[in-house]
Amino acid sequence: MISLTGTPTLQTERLTLRAPQPQDADAFIAFFASKRSQFVGGPMTERQAWNFFGTEFGHWMMRGFGMFTVTRHGDDTPLGIVGHWYPRTWPEREVGWVLFDPASEGQGIAFEAAKACIAHAWDTLKWDTIVSYIDHGNDASVALAKRLGATLDKDALPTKPEDPCYVYRHHRGTFA
């Protein structure tokens, strides 16, 4: 295996956000093969999920930023992926979030990780605007976007013209 190096690690009160590593693939594939992934591109076959994990990995090389694997301090078990996502042909740069296991929900983990990634986008990556693309029906993600201070931007373009989604726009200074 060959690891990504030179990638940042973000620390929050409870969490360590690090670049994806090959040992995260199993948890990632299990999630994207399950119905839980219905609002974030899945469910998909294991071969598709394996390839998609490769895309997550390669995104870091192609863009210089990407999705982090979220772990708790002192425990490298991957809880989900949260971070910066900008595949070619997407209209804007996104901060996105996924928790693999329902047992990780309800503890503010996605909020805490996304908040750190939003700050990283403003302060380090120097993005001038940030959106989160959310599938219709993904009420939990809409609630999180609102909790993060984002507001629905009805004029923004979806990721694919033929596939409408909500575009929530974040606002600088929300957590200042």
């Binding site: 490769g54 990995f57 390669g58 090389m61 192609m62 042909t89």
Partner: peptide
Amino acid sequence: TEAETWRYLCQVIGHWGMRG
């Protein structure tokens, strides 16, 4: 498509990570 191709080239890189 161009979008698929970009993701595919990412996968080519990711393959190095996963397989060595």
